[in-house]
């Protein structure tokens, strides 16, 4: 399993993100962090120090932003992120049961990653598919009207 220490940072690639895509502009900090996280599945400490020096924002402030917003992770995550929706419409249509089913199928609690790095289990506060609840988001794909183990298994099988 990849650990925070073993992540190799490609600084040229970081420059692409920080300079080219986001113009070294401090106001784009959140989007820079998103791009870095998309690349590494999380925010590696070394990358944050590099970013801090590049855009001249103190590390304390970057750490503040990285921990304030719920989509950021300071720990490596799996190749696929499962987010069960905990919005109210999903909640009244059985989201809790779906979450328990998924947790049991993958032996994972919220925030954990499978040993083979295949999945990380997260929750999300409403993905806006309320008429199809309960919903689960895997990476950028949405799945709705979930109920049975079979259905969940078929969906999970799509992700390697």
């Amino acid at each position: 399993m990849e650990t925070a220490e073993s992540t190799a940072i490609d600084y040229k690639e970081l420059d692409e993100i920080i300079e080219k895509e986001f113009d070294l502009d401090k106001e784009n900090l959140i989007m820079m962090l998103q791009a870095i996280q998309d690349r590494y599945t999380y925010l590696p400490e070394a990358a944050l120090y590099y970013l801090s020096a590049k855009i001249n924002v103190p590390m304390s402030q970057i750490y503040g932003v990285a921990t304030f917003y719920s989509t950021f992770s300071l720990q490596p995550r799996g190749r696929n992120i499962i987010s069960t929706c905990r919005g109210t419409a999903c909640h009244v249509r059985g989201a809790e049961t779906i979450r328990e089913k998924l947790e049991n199928m993958l032996c994972l609690s919220e925030g954990e990653t499978t040993p083979d790095n295949r999945f990380t289990m997260e929750t999300v506060r409403c993905v806006g598919g309320c008429s199809l609840g309960p919903m689960v988001k895997i990476n950028d794909e949405m799945y709705g009207n979930l109920s049975s183990d079979d259905q969940l298994k078929k969906i999970l099988d799509k992700y390697k």
Binding site: I30, F68, Y69, S70, F72, R125
Partner: peptide, 8 residues
């Protein structure tokens, strides 16, 4: 366009 990062 600016994107949020999950904070209600």
């Amino acid at each position: 366009i600016s994107t949020g990062a999950g904070a209600y």
